[in-house]
Nucleic acid binder design. Structure first.
Length: 568
RNA sequence: CGGAGUGUAGCGCAGUCUGGUAGCGCACCUGGUUUGGGACCAGGGGGUCGAAGGUUCGAGUCCUUUCACUCCGACCA
Protein backbone atom coordinates (compact mmCIF):
# COMPACT_ATOMS: atom_id res chain seq x y z
CA UNK A 1 0.00 0.00 0.00
CA UNK A 2 1.06 3.56 -0.64
CA UNK A 3 1.00 5.78 2.39
CA UNK A 4 -0.21 8.63 0.21
CA UNK A 5 -3.41 6.72 -0.60
CA UNK A 6 -4.21 5.61 2.92
CA UNK A 7 -6.31 7.49 5.43
CA UNK A 8 -3.86 7.69 8.33
CA UNK A 9 -4.69 10.87 10.23
CA UNK A 10 -1.76 11.03 12.64
CA UNK A 11 -1.86 13.71 15.30
CA UNK A 12 0.82 15.61 17.14
CA UNK A 13 -1.41 16.06 20.15
CA UNK A 14 -3.80 13.58 21.71
CA UNK A 15 -7.19 14.52 23.17
CA UNK A 16 -6.51 15.37 26.79
CA UNK A 17 -8.78 12.66 28.17
CA UNK A 18 -6.40 10.02 26.89
CA UNK A 19 -4.10 9.00 29.74
CA UNK A 20 -2.86 5.50 28.94
CA UNK A 21 -0.16 4.94 26.31
CA UNK A 22 -2.44 2.60 24.37
CA UNK A 23 -5.22 5.16 24.24
CA UNK A 24 -2.90 8.03 23.28
CA UNK A 25 -0.98 6.16 20.60
CA UNK A 26 -3.98 4.44 19.05
CA UNK A 27 -5.59 7.83 18.56
CA UNK A 28 -2.43 9.74 17.59
CA UNK A 29 -1.39 7.00 15.19
CA UNK A 30 -4.70 7.23 13.36
CA UNK A 31 -5.89 3.74 14.34
CA UNK A 32 -9.11 4.75 16.05
CA UNK A 33 -11.32 7.77 16.49
CA UNK A 34 -13.49 8.48 19.51
CA UNK A 35 -17.16 9.11 18.79
CA UNK A 36 -18.73 9.13 22.25
CA UNK A 37 -18.15 7.82 25.72
CA UNK A 38 -16.72 4.34 25.27
CA UNK A 39 -17.46 4.30 21.54
CA UNK A 40 -14.82 4.22 18.81
CA UNK A 41 -14.54 4.11 15.05
CA UNK A 42 -11.80 1.95 13.60
CA UNK A 43 -9.87 3.74 10.84
CA UNK A 44 -8.04 1.77 8.13
CA UNK A 45 -4.92 1.04 10.19
CA UNK A 46 -6.95 0.08 13.25
CA UNK A 47 -9.14 -2.18 11.19
CA UNK A 48 -6.05 -3.91 9.76
CA UNK A 49 -4.71 -4.64 13.23
CA UNK A 50 -8.11 -5.77 14.44
CA UNK A 51 -8.44 -8.15 11.49
CA UNK A 52 -4.99 -9.59 12.08
CA UNK A 53 -5.68 -10.20 15.76
CA UNK A 54 -9.10 -11.61 14.94
CA UNK A 55 -7.47 -13.93 12.45
CA UNK A 56 -5.03 -15.36 14.99
CA UNK A 57 -7.95 -16.05 17.30
CA UNK A 58 -9.95 -17.67 14.52
CA UNK A 59 -7.09 -19.83 13.25
CA UNK A 60 -6.32 -21.28 16.65
CA UNK A 61 -9.95 -21.91 17.52
CA UNK A 62 -10.68 -23.57 14.19
CA UNK A 63 -7.58 -25.69 14.73
CA UNK A 64 -8.96 -26.78 18.07
CA UNK A 65 -12.15 -27.91 16.38
CA UNK A 66 -14.44 -25.00 17.22
CA UNK A 67 -16.91 -23.72 14.62
CA UNK A 68 -17.66 -20.10 13.88
CA UNK A 69 -21.21 -18.76 13.76
CA UNK A 70 -22.71 -15.30 13.96
CA UNK A 71 -25.60 -14.57 16.28
CA UNK A 72 -28.04 -11.68 16.25
CA UNK A 73 -26.85 -8.61 18.11
CA UNK A 74 -30.33 -7.71 19.31
CA UNK A 75 -31.76 -10.35 21.64
CA UNK A 76 -35.39 -10.74 22.71
CA UNK A 77 -35.56 -9.99 26.43
CA UNK A 78 -37.71 -13.08 27.00
CA UNK A 79 -34.60 -15.27 26.69
CA UNK A 80 -32.94 -13.25 29.41
CA UNK A 81 -35.96 -13.43 31.65
CA UNK A 82 -35.97 -17.23 31.31
CA UNK A 83 -32.30 -17.52 32.30
CA UNK A 84 -32.87 -15.21 35.24
CA UNK A 85 -30.25 -12.72 34.05
CA UNK A 86 -32.62 -9.94 32.98
CA UNK A 87 -32.54 -8.73 36.59
CA UNK A 88 -29.22 -10.14 37.67
CA UNK A 89 -27.10 -8.48 34.99
CA UNK A 90 -27.91 -5.00 36.23
CA UNK A 91 -27.61 -1.66 34.51
CA UNK A 92 -24.83 -2.75 32.18
CA UNK A 93 -27.44 -4.51 30.11
CA UNK A 94 -28.85 -2.06 27.59
CA UNK A 95 -32.61 -2.65 27.34
CA UNK A 96 -35.04 -1.12 24.90
CA UNK A 97 -38.39 -1.64 23.26
CA UNK A 98 -39.29 -1.98 19.61
CA UNK A 99 -42.29 -0.29 17.96
CA UNK A 100 -44.59 -2.98 19.29
CA UNK A 101 -43.39 -2.33 22.85
CA UNK A 102 -41.59 -5.67 23.04
CA UNK A 103 -38.49 -5.75 25.26
CA UNK A 104 -35.08 -6.35 23.76
CA UNK A 105 -31.49 -6.24 24.98
CA UNK A 106 -28.22 -5.56 23.21
CA UNK A 107 -26.14 -8.66 23.84
CA UNK A 108 -23.31 -8.15 26.34
CA UNK A 109 -22.60 -11.89 25.97
CA UNK A 110 -24.61 -14.58 24.27
CA UNK A 111 -25.18 -17.64 26.45
CA UNK A 112 -28.94 -17.37 26.05
CA UNK A 113 -28.88 -17.04 22.27
CA UNK A 114 -26.38 -19.85 21.82
CA UNK A 115 -28.24 -22.22 24.13
CA UNK A 116 -31.37 -21.43 22.19
CA UNK A 117 -29.63 -22.16 18.90
CA UNK A 118 -28.31 -25.50 20.09
CA UNK A 119 -31.54 -26.45 21.82
CA UNK A 120 -33.37 -26.23 18.52
CA UNK A 121 -30.86 -28.22 16.53
CA UNK A 122 -29.15 -30.74 18.80
CA UNK A 123 -31.27 -33.59 20.11
CA UNK A 124 -28.89 -36.50 20.61
CA UNK A 125 -25.69 -37.29 22.49
CA UNK A 126 -24.37 -38.44 19.10
CA UNK A 127 -24.17 -34.79 18.01
CA UNK A 128 -21.97 -33.88 20.98
CA UNK A 129 -19.54 -32.45 21.86
CA UNK A 130 -19.93 -29.14 20.09
CA UNK A 131 -17.95 -25.92 20.40
CA UNK A 132 -19.46 -22.86 18.71
CA UNK A 133 -18.04 -19.36 18.74
CA UNK A 134 -18.49 -15.97 17.17
CA UNK A 135 -16.40 -12.81 16.92
CA UNK A 136 -18.91 -10.01 17.10
CA UNK A 137 -19.74 -6.68 18.66
CA UNK A 138 -20.93 -6.60 22.21
CA UNK A 139 -22.45 -3.77 24.15
CA UNK A 140 -22.10 -3.24 27.88
CA UNK A 141 -23.28 0.00 29.38
CA UNK A 142 -20.26 0.34 31.68
CA UNK A 143 -20.50 2.62 34.72
CA UNK A 144 -17.33 4.37 33.71
CA UNK A 145 -16.00 3.67 30.26
CA UNK A 146 -12.36 4.76 30.04
CA UNK A 147 -8.89 4.09 28.73
CA UNK A 148 -9.91 3.90 25.08
CA UNK A 149 -10.29 0.39 23.78
CA UNK A 150 -9.48 -1.00 27.22
CA UNK A 151 -12.93 -0.41 28.63
CA UNK A 152 -15.28 0.70 25.92
CA UNK A 153 -19.02 0.21 25.94
CA UNK A 154 -19.12 -1.23 22.45
CA UNK A 155 -16.33 -3.72 21.84
CA UNK A 156 -15.35 -6.71 19.77
CA UNK A 157 -15.38 -9.98 21.63
CA UNK A 158 -14.91 -13.57 20.73
CA UNK A 159 -17.38 -15.63 22.71
CA UNK A 160 -17.43 -19.41 22.50
CA UNK A 161 -19.74 -21.98 24.03
CA UNK A 162 -19.26 -25.71 24.29
CA UNK A 163 -21.90 -28.37 24.82
CA UNK A 164 -21.25 -31.78 26.32
CA UNK A 165 -22.99 -34.93 27.44
CA UNK A 166 -21.20 -35.00 30.76
CA UNK A 167 -18.97 -33.11 33.17
CA UNK A 168 -15.75 -34.95 32.23
CA UNK A 169 -16.04 -34.10 28.59
CA UNK A 170 -16.70 -30.46 29.44
CA UNK A 171 -13.54 -30.44 31.58
CA UNK A 172 -11.55 -31.92 28.72
CA UNK A 173 -12.74 -29.12 26.43
CA UNK A 174 -12.04 -26.54 29.14
CA UNK A 175 -8.42 -27.74 29.31
CA UNK A 176 -8.20 -27.70 25.51
CA UNK A 177 -9.44 -24.11 25.45
CA UNK A 178 -6.90 -23.12 28.10
CA UNK A 179 -4.13 -24.49 25.87
CA UNK A 180 -5.65 -22.84 22.78
CA UNK A 181 -5.83 -19.48 24.54
CA UNK A 182 -2.21 -19.78 25.60
CA UNK A 183 -1.24 -20.35 21.98
CA UNK A 184 -3.26 -17.33 20.85
CA UNK A 185 -1.71 -14.93 23.35
CA UNK A 186 1.76 -16.32 22.75
CA UNK A 187 1.40 -15.81 19.00
CA UNK A 188 0.36 -12.23 19.64
CA UNK A 189 3.59 -11.69 21.57
CA UNK A 190 2.03 -11.07 24.96
CA UNK A 191 3.46 -11.67 28.42
CA UNK A 192 0.51 -13.13 30.32
CA UNK A 193 -0.54 -15.27 33.27
CA UNK A 194 -3.42 -17.69 33.68
CA UNK A 195 -5.10 -17.06 37.04
CA UNK A 196 -7.99 -18.39 39.10
CA UNK A 197 -10.97 -16.07 38.97
CA UNK A 198 -14.40 -15.17 40.20
CA UNK A 199 -17.19 -16.09 37.81
CA UNK A 200 -19.24 -12.93 38.31
CA UNK A 201 -22.52 -12.48 36.48
CA UNK A 202 -21.81 -15.32 34.04
CA UNK A 203 -22.07 -17.88 36.82
CA UNK A 204 -20.57 -21.35 37.07
CA UNK A 205 -17.49 -22.64 38.82
CA UNK A 206 -13.77 -23.10 38.24
CA UNK A 207 -13.16 -20.14 35.97
CA UNK A 208 -9.77 -18.92 34.79
CA UNK A 209 -8.69 -15.54 33.54
CA UNK A 210 -5.89 -14.71 31.10
CA UNK A 211 -4.11 -11.63 32.35
CA UNK A 212 -1.69 -9.56 30.31
CA UNK A 213 0.82 -8.19 32.79
CA UNK A 214 0.90 -4.39 32.69
CA UNK A 215 1.06 -1.68 35.33
CA UNK A 216 -1.96 0.00 33.82
CA UNK A 217 -4.09 -3.13 34.24
CA UNK A 218 -7.38 -2.63 36.02
CA UNK A 219 -7.25 -5.95 37.87
CA UNK A 220 -5.08 -6.78 40.84
CA UNK A 221 -3.75 -10.28 40.66
CA UNK A 222 -2.06 -12.28 43.39
CA UNK A 223 0.95 -14.29 42.30
CA UNK A 224 3.15 -16.75 44.17
CA UNK A 225 6.91 -16.14 44.12
CA UNK A 226 7.56 -19.83 44.43
CA UNK A 227 5.06 -21.86 42.42
CA UNK A 228 2.72 -21.24 39.48
CA UNK A 229 -0.24 -20.15 41.60
CA UNK A 230 -1.91 -16.96 40.44
CA UNK A 231 -5.39 -15.63 41.13
CA UNK A 232 -7.46 -12.53 40.73
CA UNK A 233 -7.67 -10.68 44.06
CA UNK A 234 -11.42 -11.36 43.88
CA UNK A 235 -10.79 -15.10 44.12
CA UNK A 236 -7.32 -15.43 45.68
CA UNK A 237 -6.82 -17.62 48.72
CA UNK A 238 -3.94 -17.80 51.16
CA UNK A 239 -3.01 -19.86 54.21
CA UNK A 240 -4.66 -18.67 57.44
CA UNK A 241 -2.51 -16.09 59.13
CA UNK A 242 -1.25 -16.77 62.65
CA UNK A 243 -0.60 -13.72 64.80
CA UNK A 244 2.65 -13.76 66.75
CA UNK A 245 1.54 -11.10 69.23
CA UNK A 246 -0.07 -12.14 72.52
CA UNK A 247 -3.86 -12.10 72.61
CA UNK A 248 -5.45 -9.61 75.06
CA UNK A 249 -6.64 -12.20 77.59
CA UNK A 250 -9.48 -10.77 79.66
CA UNK A 251 -12.74 -11.73 81.30
CA UNK A 252 -15.79 -10.77 79.26
CA UNK A 253 -16.65 -7.16 80.10
CA UNK A 254 -18.05 -3.96 78.69
CA UNK A 255 -15.39 -1.29 78.44
CA UNK A 256 -15.77 2.47 78.14
CA UNK A 257 -14.12 3.67 74.91
CA UNK A 258 -15.22 7.29 74.53
CA UNK A 259 -14.99 8.37 70.91
CA UNK A 260 -12.65 5.50 70.04
CA UNK A 261 -14.02 4.33 66.71
CA UNK A 262 -11.52 3.12 64.20
CA UNK A 263 -9.44 -0.04 64.23
CA UNK A 264 -6.29 2.10 64.51
CA UNK A 265 -7.64 4.01 67.49
CA UNK A 266 -8.78 0.83 69.22
CA UNK A 267 -5.46 -0.84 68.53
CA UNK A 268 -3.50 1.92 70.24
CA UNK A 269 -6.10 2.39 73.00
CA UNK A 270 -5.97 -1.27 74.04
CA UNK A 271 -2.35 -1.75 72.88
CA UNK A 272 -3.25 -4.89 70.93
CA UNK A 273 -2.59 -6.14 67.45
CA UNK A 274 -5.61 -5.35 65.19
CA UNK A 275 -5.74 -9.10 64.60
CA UNK A 276 -7.60 -9.36 67.92
CA UNK A 277 -10.17 -6.68 67.11
CA UNK A 278 -13.35 -7.52 65.21
CA UNK A 279 -13.86 -5.18 62.28
CA UNK A 280 -17.47 -4.66 61.23
CA UNK A 281 -18.30 -3.52 57.73
CA UNK A 282 -21.92 -2.56 57.05
CA UNK A 283 -23.29 -2.68 53.49
CA UNK A 284 -26.63 -2.76 51.81
CA UNK A 285 -27.12 -5.86 49.67
CA UNK A 286 -29.34 -5.69 46.59
CA UNK A 287 -31.20 -8.73 45.29
CA UNK A 288 -33.59 -9.58 42.45
CA UNK A 289 -36.94 -7.83 42.27
CA UNK A 290 -35.65 -4.79 44.13
CA UNK A 291 -35.20 -6.58 47.45
CA UNK A 292 -32.52 -5.13 49.71
CA UNK A 293 -31.22 -5.59 53.23
CA UNK A 294 -28.48 -4.31 55.48
CA UNK A 295 -25.73 -6.81 56.10
CA UNK A 296 -22.92 -6.71 58.67
CA UNK A 297 -19.67 -8.36 57.69
CA UNK A 298 -17.33 -9.35 60.52
CA UNK A 299 -13.63 -9.85 60.01
CA UNK A 300 -10.37 -9.36 61.83
CA UNK A 301 -9.10 -5.80 62.18
CA UNK A 302 -5.93 -6.80 60.37
CA UNK A 303 -7.91 -7.90 57.30
CA UNK A 304 -9.85 -6.07 54.63
CA UNK A 305 -13.19 -6.96 53.17
CA UNK A 306 -13.05 -8.33 49.61
CA UNK A 307 -16.29 -7.09 48.09
CA UNK A 308 -16.66 -9.73 45.42
CA UNK A 309 -16.22 -12.52 47.95
CA UNK A 310 -18.67 -10.76 50.26
CA UNK A 311 -21.17 -10.52 47.42
CA UNK A 312 -20.79 -14.21 46.64
CA UNK A 313 -21.29 -15.20 50.29
CA UNK A 314 -24.78 -13.68 50.08
CA UNK A 315 -25.64 -14.55 46.50
CA UNK A 316 -26.61 -10.90 46.10
CA UNK A 317 -26.45 -8.79 42.95
CA UNK A 318 -24.66 -5.80 44.37
CA UNK A 319 -23.31 -4.28 47.57
CA UNK A 320 -23.56 -0.57 48.21
CA UNK A 321 -22.26 1.64 50.99
CA UNK A 322 -24.54 2.97 53.69
CA UNK A 323 -24.09 5.97 55.96
CA UNK A 324 -24.39 6.35 59.72
CA UNK A 325 -27.92 7.79 59.47
CA UNK A 326 -29.19 4.63 57.83
CA UNK A 327 -27.48 2.61 60.55
CA UNK A 328 -29.10 4.65 63.30
CA UNK A 329 -32.51 4.05 61.81
CA UNK A 330 -32.17 0.36 62.60
CA UNK A 331 -30.66 1.03 66.02
CA UNK A 332 -26.94 0.67 65.22
CA UNK A 333 -24.15 3.01 66.25
CA UNK A 334 -21.41 3.64 63.68
CA UNK A 335 -17.97 3.17 65.22
CA UNK A 336 -19.24 0.79 67.88
CA UNK A 337 -20.64 -2.05 65.78
CA UNK A 338 -20.15 -5.63 66.85
CA UNK A 339 -21.63 -9.12 66.58
CA UNK A 340 -23.20 -9.17 70.07
CA UNK A 341 -26.58 -7.76 71.14
CA UNK A 342 -27.67 -6.99 67.61
CA UNK A 343 -31.25 -6.05 66.86
CA UNK A 344 -33.24 -8.96 65.43
CA UNK A 345 -33.31 -9.69 61.72
CA UNK A 346 -29.92 -8.19 60.92
CA UNK A 347 -28.10 -10.37 58.43
CA UNK A 348 -24.52 -11.16 59.44
CA UNK A 349 -21.59 -12.80 57.69
CA UNK A 350 -18.41 -13.91 59.50
CA UNK A 351 -15.04 -14.46 57.94
CA UNK A 352 -13.58 -17.97 58.32
CA UNK A 353 -10.78 -16.59 60.51
CA UNK A 354 -13.30 -15.62 63.19
CA UNK A 355 -14.74 -19.11 63.60
CA UNK A 356 -14.10 -20.02 67.29
CA UNK A 357 -11.94 -16.93 67.77
CA UNK A 358 -11.23 -16.14 71.41
CA UNK A 359 -10.10 -13.11 73.42
CA UNK A 360 -11.43 -10.66 70.89
CA UNK A 361 -12.40 -7.01 71.24
CA UNK A 362 -15.50 -5.74 69.47
CA UNK A 363 -18.03 -2.92 69.47
CA UNK A 364 -20.90 -3.16 71.98
CA UNK A 365 -23.56 -1.72 69.65
CA UNK A 366 -23.80 1.13 72.13
CA UNK A 367 -22.17 4.56 71.82
CA UNK A 368 -18.72 4.78 73.47
CA UNK A 369 -18.53 1.13 74.55
CA UNK A 370 -16.66 -1.95 73.37
CA UNK A 371 -16.55 -5.49 74.74
CA UNK A 372 -13.32 -7.21 75.70
CA UNK A 373 -12.70 -10.90 76.28
CA UNK A 374 -15.13 -11.97 73.59
CA UNK A 375 -15.13 -15.66 72.60
CA UNK A 376 -17.13 -16.26 69.44
CA UNK A 377 -19.34 -19.34 69.22
CA UNK A 378 -20.96 -19.28 65.83
CA UNK A 379 -23.96 -21.52 65.33
CA UNK A 380 -24.64 -23.56 62.24
CA UNK A 381 -27.09 -21.09 60.73
CA UNK A 382 -24.59 -18.25 60.61
CA UNK A 383 -22.92 -17.59 57.28
CA UNK A 384 -19.19 -18.27 57.69
CA UNK A 385 -17.19 -17.75 54.53
CA UNK A 386 -13.98 -16.43 53.05
CA UNK A 387 -14.67 -12.71 52.66
CA UNK A 388 -11.24 -11.12 53.08
CA UNK A 389 -8.56 -9.95 50.67
CA UNK A 390 -5.29 -11.77 50.37
CA UNK A 391 -2.48 -9.43 51.44
CA UNK A 392 0.99 -9.15 50.00
CA UNK A 393 3.33 -11.39 51.98
CA UNK A 394 0.62 -13.95 52.81
CA UNK A 395 1.56 -17.59 52.33
CA UNK A 396 0.53 -19.52 49.23
CA UNK A 397 -2.05 -22.27 49.88
CA UNK A 398 -0.22 -24.61 47.50
CA UNK A 399 3.42 -24.26 48.46
CA UNK A 400 3.67 -21.83 51.35
CA UNK A 401 5.62 -19.38 49.20
CA UNK A 402 5.22 -15.67 49.59
CA UNK A 403 2.41 -14.00 47.60
CA UNK A 404 2.65 -10.59 45.94
CA UNK A 405 0.40 -8.30 43.91
CA UNK A 406 0.75 -7.37 40.28
CA UNK A 407 -1.56 -5.69 37.79
CA UNK A 408 -3.17 -7.36 34.82
CA UNK A 409 -5.40 -6.65 31.85
CA UNK A 410 -8.07 -9.29 31.50
CA UNK A 411 -8.00 -10.44 27.88
CA UNK A 412 -9.57 -13.86 28.23
CA UNK A 413 -11.87 -15.66 30.63
CA UNK A 414 -12.97 -19.28 30.48
CA UNK A 415 -15.78 -20.77 32.58
CA UNK A 416 -17.03 -24.21 33.47
CA UNK A 417 -20.73 -23.47 33.33
CA UNK A 418 -22.25 -26.88 33.92
CA UNK A 419 -26.00 -26.70 33.56
CA UNK A 420 -26.36 -23.10 34.77
CA UNK A 421 -28.11 -22.07 31.51
CA UNK A 422 -29.24 -25.34 29.97
CA UNK A 423 -31.45 -26.19 32.94
CA UNK A 424 -33.49 -22.97 33.22
CA UNK A 425 -33.68 -22.72 29.43
CA UNK A 426 -34.62 -26.42 29.25
CA UNK A 427 -31.95 -27.20 26.67
CA UNK A 428 -31.80 -30.98 26.72
CA UNK A 429 -30.64 -33.95 24.68
CA UNK A 430 -31.26 -37.69 24.80
CA UNK A 431 -28.42 -39.79 26.21
CA UNK A 432 -27.46 -43.40 25.34
CA UNK A 433 -30.33 -44.68 27.45
CA UNK A 434 -32.89 -42.43 25.82
CA UNK A 435 -33.02 -40.26 28.93
CA UNK A 436 -33.43 -36.50 28.67
CA UNK A 437 -30.54 -34.52 30.16
CA UNK A 438 -29.48 -30.84 30.18
CA UNK A 439 -26.31 -30.00 28.25
CA UNK A 440 -23.18 -29.59 30.31
CA UNK A 441 -21.60 -26.37 29.10
CA UNK A 442 -18.45 -24.31 29.07
CA UNK A 443 -18.06 -20.72 27.92
CA UNK A 444 -14.95 -18.98 26.68
CA UNK A 445 -14.38 -15.27 26.00
CA UNK A 446 -11.59 -13.16 24.49
CA UNK A 447 -11.67 -9.36 24.39
CA UNK A 448 -10.49 -8.88 20.81
CA UNK A 449 -10.57 -5.08 20.65
CA UNK A 450 -9.14 -4.91 24.16
CA UNK A 451 -6.23 -7.01 22.91
CA UNK A 452 -5.12 -4.09 20.74
CA UNK A 453 -4.88 -1.92 23.83
CA UNK A 454 -3.16 -4.70 25.78
CA UNK A 455 -0.54 -5.21 23.05
CA UNK A 456 0.32 -1.50 23.07
CA UNK A 457 0.36 -1.31 26.86
CA UNK A 458 3.05 -3.97 26.77
CA UNK A 459 4.78 -2.85 23.58
CA UNK A 460 5.40 0.86 23.25
CA UNK A 461 8.02 3.50 23.98
CA UNK A 462 8.00 7.28 24.30
CA UNK A 463 7.72 7.62 20.52
CA UNK A 464 4.71 5.43 19.90
CA UNK A 465 3.43 1.92 19.21
CA UNK A 466 5.61 -1.14 18.62
CA UNK A 467 3.34 -3.79 17.13
CA UNK A 468 4.23 -7.42 17.50
CA UNK A 469 4.82 -9.56 14.47
CA UNK A 470 1.34 -11.06 14.23
CA UNK A 471 -0.53 -7.90 15.13
CA UNK A 472 1.17 -5.27 12.98
CA UNK A 473 -0.86 -3.66 10.19
CA UNK A 474 2.16 -4.12 7.87
CA UNK A 475 5.29 -6.28 8.00
CA UNK A 476 7.55 -3.49 6.86
CA UNK A 477 7.54 0.15 5.84
CA UNK A 478 9.68 1.44 2.96
CA UNK A 479 10.56 5.04 3.68
CA UNK A 480 11.68 7.27 0.84
CA UNK A 481 13.77 10.02 2.30
CA UNK A 482 13.17 12.45 -0.56
CA UNK A 483 10.42 11.44 -2.95
CA UNK A 484 11.51 14.11 -5.43
CA UNK A 485 14.90 12.51 -5.81
CA UNK A 486 14.31 10.29 -8.84
CA UNK A 487 16.98 7.78 -7.99
CA UNK A 488 15.69 7.28 -4.44
CA UNK A 489 12.14 7.04 -5.64
CA UNK A 490 12.95 4.51 -8.33
CA UNK A 491 14.94 2.24 -6.00
CA UNK A 492 12.29 2.50 -3.31
CA UNK A 493 9.53 1.35 -5.62
CA UNK A 494 11.73 -1.42 -6.98
CA UNK A 495 12.28 -2.71 -3.43
CA UNK A 496 8.62 -2.25 -2.54
CA UNK A 497 7.47 -4.23 -5.58
CA UNK A 498 10.05 -6.92 -4.90
CA UNK A 499 8.74 -7.30 -1.36
CA UNK A 500 5.20 -7.56 -2.60
CA UNK A 501 6.21 -10.31 -5.01
CA UNK A 502 7.46 -12.24 -2.02
CA UNK A 503 4.05 -11.82 -0.39
CA UNK A 504 5.46 -9.47 2.19
CA UNK A 505 2.86 -6.99 3.36
CA UNK A 506 4.70 -3.73 2.77
CA UNK A 507 3.79 -0.07 3.14
CA UNK A 508 5.67 2.58 1.19
CA UNK A 509 5.82 6.10 2.55
CA UNK A 510 5.81 8.00 -0.74
CA UNK A 511 4.56 11.31 0.65
CA UNK A 512 6.23 14.55 -0.30
CA UNK A 513 7.32 15.28 3.25
CA UNK A 514 10.61 15.83 4.96
CA UNK A 515 12.55 12.89 6.34
CA UNK A 516 11.98 13.73 9.99
CA UNK A 517 8.26 14.05 9.53
CA UNK A 518 8.01 10.62 7.96
CA UNK A 519 10.21 9.04 10.64
CA UNK A 520 8.01 10.44 13.39
CA UNK A 521 4.95 8.96 11.73
CA UNK A 522 6.71 5.63 11.25
CA UNK A 523 7.65 5.49 14.93
CA UNK A 524 4.19 6.50 16.04
CA UNK A 525 2.49 3.87 13.90
CA UNK A 526 4.96 1.24 15.05
CA UNK A 527 5.49 -1.15 12.15
CA UNK A 528 8.19 -3.60 13.31
CA UNK A 529 10.70 -2.92 10.47
CA UNK A 530 11.54 -0.21 7.97
CA UNK A 531 13.83 0.11 4.97
CA UNK A 532 15.10 3.65 4.59
CA UNK A 533 16.10 4.81 1.14
CA UNK A 534 18.27 7.87 1.49
CA UNK A 535 21.36 9.56 0.15
CA UNK A 536 23.43 6.40 0.14
CA UNK A 537 21.47 4.89 -2.76
CA UNK A 538 24.18 6.47 -4.90
CA UNK A 539 26.56 3.94 -3.30
CA UNK A 540 23.99 1.15 -3.63
CA UNK A 541 23.18 1.14 0.05
CA UNK A 542 19.92 1.37 2.00
CA UNK A 543 19.26 1.09 5.70
CA UNK A 544 17.26 -1.57 7.54
CA UNK A 545 15.95 -0.63 10.98
CA UNK A 546 13.70 -2.27 13.52
CA UNK A 547 11.16 -0.26 15.43
CA UNK A 548 12.30 -1.53 18.81
CA UNK A 549 15.81 -0.25 18.10
CA UNK A 550 17.54 -3.62 18.10
CA UNK A 551 18.66 -3.50 14.47
CA UNK A 552 20.00 -0.61 12.42
CA UNK A 553 22.32 -1.57 9.63
CA UNK A 554 23.34 -0.61 6.13
CA UNK A 555 22.49 -3.17 3.50
CA UNK A 556 23.43 -3.52 -0.12
CA UNK A 557 20.39 -2.95 -2.36
CA UNK A 558 20.83 -6.31 -4.03
CA UNK A 559 20.47 -8.11 -0.68
CA UNK A 560 17.71 -6.14 0.94
CA UNK A 561 14.70 -8.15 -0.24
CA UNK A 562 16.21 -11.46 0.86
CA UNK A 563 17.18 -10.00 4.18
CA UNK A 564 13.72 -8.63 4.85
CA UNK A 565 12.15 -11.93 3.79
CA UNK A 566 14.28 -13.64 6.44
CA UNK A 567 13.23 -11.46 9.37
CA UNK A 568 9.54 -10.84 8.81
C1' C B 1 -24.89 7.10 42.30
C1' G B 2 -22.01 11.02 45.23
C1' G B 3 -18.25 14.96 44.57
C1' A B 4 -15.36 18.20 41.17
C1' G B 5 -14.62 20.17 36.40
C1' U B 6 -15.03 21.14 31.09
C1' G B 7 -17.95 22.28 26.48
C1' U B 8 -15.23 28.25 21.51
C1' A B 9 -12.50 25.63 13.80
C1' G B 10 -10.53 18.55 12.73
C1' C B 11 -6.96 18.52 17.44
C1' G B 12 -4.79 21.46 21.64
C1' C B 13 -6.19 26.05 23.85
C1' A B 14 -6.98 31.81 24.97
C1' G B 15 -11.07 35.22 25.30
C1' U B 16 -16.02 34.82 30.00
C1' C B 17 -14.32 38.06 36.08
C1' U B 18 -15.30 43.86 33.78
C1' G B 19 -21.13 42.61 27.62
C1' G B 20 -19.20 46.22 22.21
C1' U B 21 -15.82 43.40 14.87
C1' A B 22 -14.48 35.51 16.84
C1' G B 23 -8.69 34.71 18.34
C1' C B 24 -3.77 31.68 18.80
C1' G B 25 -0.73 27.06 17.79
C1' C B 26 -1.05 22.50 15.00
C1' A B 27 -3.68 20.48 10.82
C1' C B 28 -5.94 21.97 5.84
C1' C B 29 -5.82 24.78 0.60
C1' U B 30 -2.68 27.87 -3.30
C1' G B 31 2.22 29.50 -4.97
C1' G B 32 7.40 29.41 -4.13
C1' U B 33 11.95 27.82 -1.56
C1' U B 34 13.42 23.31 1.03
C1' U B 35 14.33 17.46 1.64
C1' G B 36 18.38 12.44 7.06
C1' G B 37 14.72 13.85 12.47
C1' G B 38 7.69 16.85 13.04
C1' A B 39 11.06 23.17 7.64
C1' C B 40 10.49 28.42 5.80
C1' C B 41 8.07 32.74 3.17
C1' A B 42 3.59 34.80 1.15
C1' G B 43 -1.54 34.35 0.50
C1' G B 44 -6.15 31.70 1.84
C1' G B 45 -10.49 28.54 3.58
C1' G B 46 -12.97 26.86 7.82
C1' G B 47 -17.16 28.72 13.78
C1' U B 48 -25.45 27.97 14.86
C1' C B 49 -18.94 29.85 20.85
C1' G B 50 -22.88 22.25 23.40
C1' A B 51 -28.57 23.30 23.13
C1' A B 52 -33.05 26.13 24.55
C1' G B 53 -35.10 30.29 26.81
C1' G B 54 -34.39 35.10 29.26
C1' U B 55 -32.04 40.19 30.52
C1' U B 56 -29.98 44.13 27.20
C1' C B 57 -29.63 48.90 22.00
C1' G B 58 -26.07 44.84 21.87
C1' A B 59 -24.53 38.19 24.85
C1' G B 60 -18.98 33.55 23.64
C1' U B 61 -19.25 36.76 28.16
C1' C B 62 -24.82 37.97 32.75
C1' C B 63 -29.44 34.81 34.50
C1' U B 64 -32.48 30.14 34.14
C1' U B 65 -33.12 25.36 32.22
C1' U B 66 -31.08 21.33 29.72
C1' C B 67 -27.67 17.98 27.19
C1' A B 68 -22.90 15.92 26.54
C1' C B 69 -18.12 14.74 28.06
C1' U B 70 -14.01 14.15 31.61
C1' C B 71 -11.82 13.36 36.34
C1' C B 72 -12.09 11.62 41.54
C1' G B 73 -14.68 8.17 45.04
C1' A B 74 -16.93 3.49 46.42
C1' C B 75 -12.16 0.04 53.18
C1' C B 76 -15.91 3.33 57.11
C1' A B 77 -17.55 1.25 61.75
Amino acid sequence: MKFSNLLIPTLKEAPNDATLPSHIYLIRGGFIQGVGSGLYNFLPLGKMVLDRVKNVVKEELDNAGAQEVSLGFVTPASLWVESGRFEKYGKELLRFKDRKENDFVLGPTHEEMMVNLVKQTVKSYKQLPLNLYQINLKFRDEIRPRFGLMRGREFLMKDGYSFHANEEDMKREFALMEETYKRIFTRLGLDFRVVEADSGAIGGTGSKEFMVLADSGEDTIVVCKNCKYGANIEAAKSMPYVCKDEPPVAAFAKFSTPNIKTIDELSSFFKVNPYYIIKTVAKKALYDEGKEEIVLFFLRGSDELQETKALNSLNANDLIDINSDELEQIGLEAGFLGPLNLPNNIKTVFDNSLNSATNMICGANEKDYHYVGVDLKLDKDTIIDDIISVKEGDKCIHCGGSLYYTKGIEVGHIFQLGTRYSEPLRAEFLDENGKSKPFVMGTYGIGVSRLLAAIIEQHHDEKGCIWTKESSPFDICVIVSNIKDEKQSEIAFKIYNGLKEKNINALIDDRNERFGFKMKDYELIGIPYAVIIGKKVEEGIVELISRDGQVAREVNISNIIEMVADIV
